[in-house]
Computed example of a mutant assay.
Amino acid sequence: MNELLDHLLATPILAIALTLAANVAGIRLLKAVGTPAWCPPVLVASLLLAGVLALLSIDYADYRRGAAWLMLLLGPATVALGLPLHEQMPQIRALWRPLLACLPLAALLAAAYAVGIAWLLGAPPETLASLAAKSVTAPIAIGITEQIGGSVSLMMGGLLITGVAAIGFVGLGARLLGIHDERIIGFALGLNGHALGTVHAFEIGPVAGAFASLGMSLTGIVSALLLPLAWRLVGA
């Protein structure tokens, strides 16, 4: 059995097959229980995948090496979000001033509160660096985390938790504040919840999805430009 696993891990086949199988299983399980909005399929898929890796005693580094082929698809998938942005361009132009006014502060707070809480709890520098980009979409967050000396594995865990939490809290906040504008809800989901929030926004409607794409993209750009610089200044 160990020899077979070693042979399969030498190629990307096993990692890709386990990832796709976990994703399909997660979608079917959620459909069976009524697809709750607070629980995206990727969360269930991640838990299933983690259980299988532990059961088969597969080291995460070996799995990640094989799954790197899937990571290559994140970039084109992110770029493809430009289509809904183009379709909603008239509405985006009408709101470009308030969007640009709130974006830098919101992106800063998204990074600062997680790092601040971890710092107060006595987390080591590597953990702090791993949490800084937890609200940025994965292709950009990986590069930021590697640049500032964080752990990509820990960052990916924070990324998943942040996306799930953003879906729940943005929806709850919108209901409590009486916000029904899909543009505002979508932008908040993309800014705070990256890809997971954007997927949920498209479930709300095309306008929410487009503004979520905008929020996710702009947060990634601002974070990629400012986070490494801010990290060096704080570290100095």
Rank of each mutant, 00 (worst) to 15 (best):
G51K: 03
Y63I: 00
R65I: 14
I58K: 08
L49H: 05
L47S: 13
D62T: 03
R65K: 15
A61D: 10
C39D: 06
Y60V: 09
W38C: 15
Y60Q: 15
A67S: 14
L29Q: 01
I58Q: 10
L55Y: 14
G34F: 04
V44P: 00
A37T: 10
A45S: 08
V42Y: 08
G34R: 04
C39Q: 09
D59Y: 05
V52Y: 05
L56R: 11
L55W: 15
V33H: 02
V24P: 01
L29E: 00
G26H: 02
G66P: 06
L47R: 09
A45F: 01
D59P: 03
Y63G: 00
P41D: 13
A50S: 11
L53K: 10
A25Y: 06
R28T: 06
N23P: 03
L56Q: 13
S46F: 02
W38A: 15
P41N: 12
S57L: 11
Y60L: 14
R64K: 13
L56H: 11
N23Q: 13
V24R: 10
S46Q: 02
A32E: 12
K31I: 01
L55V: 15
L56T: 15
L48E: 02
L29I: 06
V44I: 14
I58V: 14
A50C: 05
S57T: 13
A32M: 09
L43N: 06
R64I: 05
W38V: 14
D62S: 12
G34D: 03
P41R: 06
A37F: 11
L48D: 00
A25M: 09
N23C: 12
A37Q: 10
L43T: 01
L53G: 07
G51E: 02
G34A: 04
R28C: 10
L43E: 05
I58D: 13
G26C: 04
L30I: 07
G34Y: 01
L55M: 15
A37H: 08
V42A: 11
A61Q: 10
V52T: 12
P36G: 13
L30V: 07
L55P: 11
V33M: 04
L55G: 15
L30W: 03
D59V: 05
L30M: 08
K31Q: 09
A67F: 07
A54D: 08
P40E: 06
V33N: 02
A37N: 10
P36S: 09
I27C: 07
I58N: 08
V52G: 11
A54H: 14
G66C: 11
I58S: 12
S57E: 15
R64M: 10
T35I: 07
V42R: 09
A45P: 00
L48C: 03
R64L: 12
P41C: 11
N23F: 08
L53I: 06
V24G: 04
V42S: 10
L29A: 05
A54V: 08
V52D: 09
D59R: 12
A61P: 02
L30P: 03
V33R: 04
